[in-house]
């Protein structure tokens, strides 16, 4: 695999809070242009992995490389500046800001107003509701609408790579299907995706490759098809 094909590489990562390690020797690679998924149940370390990549929980050991640049321990805003965007777990919209202000924050590092407007237009065409309710406070929207806003906000920076943490959490099956379809389309336009999920069925349907985390360790990896057939993944997820 050439250097350019590896968008994100996590090498032998150890990370955690206080003294306990949540991630133990985790190595994953997200290939450019692909959807790579990280499957795992609650407490398997998925969110800690996302936080480490973003610089919110600096790793104790190991290395994180994005597009050839070492981003281990870099402050969050500088990681974002390199072209990574995140759709965080629990959506995390700013409740007392309007929908448009939330979207504009997604493009915070973009200073060209014309580019921001163009991206607003693109997000509005995916989620027309966000345009209709531009001036509504985000906190007054339903959970499903907040999920749209969170995805739209993640696209506003025009990222090269998108980290998506549990997009299906707390959403009805219809919304989950819609959101996964949006993720697939965004990926088709060339955006590398790292998708962290508990919902193995739908995730493996759109992912190219994936890893399974359990108690902070990688216990399985491979193509999405291989993971679907993997005995361990079957037992854990498909009963």
């Amino acid at each position: 695999m050439t250097e350019a094909a590896r968008a994100l590489e996590v090498e032998h990562l150890f990370a955690g809070y206080d003294r306990a390690d949540v991630l133990v020797d985790v190595s994953i690679t997200a290939r450019a242009g692909e959807i790579t998924c990280i499957l795992g149940s609650n407490g398997s370390g998925k969110t800690t992995l996302v936080r480490s990549i973003l610089g919110l929980t600096p790793p104790r050991r190991g290395r994180i490389v994005f597009d050839g640049a070492d981003i281990t321990g870099l402050p969050t805003h500088r990681v974002i500046a390199l072209g990574i965007a995140c759709i965080p777990e629990g959506r995390k919209v700013f409740p007392k800001l309007t929908i448009e202000e939330n979207l504009r924050l997604g493009a915070y590092r973009e200073t060209d107003e014309a580019t921001i407007r163009k991206r607003l237009g693109e997000v509005h065409s995916i989620f027309p509701k966000l345009e209709e309710r531009r001036t509504q406070l985000a906190g007054t929207m339903s959970g499903g609408e907040q999920a749209m806003l969170s995805i739209g906000r993640g696209l506003m920076s025009g990222p090269r790579m998108l980290l998506i943490d549990e997009p299906s959490l707390g959403l009805s099956p219809l919304f989950v299907r819609q959101n996964f379809e949006v993720i697939r389309r965004v990926n088709e336009q060339g955006v590398t995706v790292l998708l962290v999920e508990q919902n193995a069925h739908q995730t493996l349907a759109i992912a190219h490759r994936g890893y399974v985390l359990s108690k902070g360790r990688v216990v399985a990896e491979g193509s999405a098809a291989a993971l679907r057939d993997n005995e361990e993944v079957r037992r854990a997820y498909f009963g």
Partner: peptide
Amino acid sequence: TRLGLAIRAVAQDSETARVMGIDF
């Protein structure tokens, strides 16, 4: 202003504000 938007974002949720690329 853009700066004010960053101030209000930090006031509401400083961690998510950082994830938006704001230098906290």
